[in-house]
């Protein structure tokens, strides 16, 4: 399943690139997840009337 090297040169990014979607899902998650925190932080501020 897991292939340590999927390209001519092995690198961190090519390791994450295990199939048609793995790398891009990881990157999208990294970008979107913290927005949930921003959302709740803003909600808190809104409720406390800032």
């Amino acid at each position: 399943m897991f292939e340590p090297c999927t390209d001519i040169v092995c690198s961190f990014w090519s390791m994450l690139n295990q199939g048609p979607m793995t790398l891009t899902i990881i990157l999208h998650t990294l970008i979107v997840l913290p927005m949930i925190w921003i959302y709740f932080d803003e909600k808190k501020k809104l409720q406390s009337g800032e």
Binding site: I31, P34, M35, I38, Y39, E42, K43, L46
Partner: peptide, 16 residues
């Protein structure tokens, strides 16, 4: 609502 808060979108835009 947070969804119509300019500050929420500004912070998100900066982060992204």
């Amino acid at each position: 609502s947070v969804w119509t808060s300019n500050r929420f979108w500004r912070r998100s835009a900066t982060w992204i």
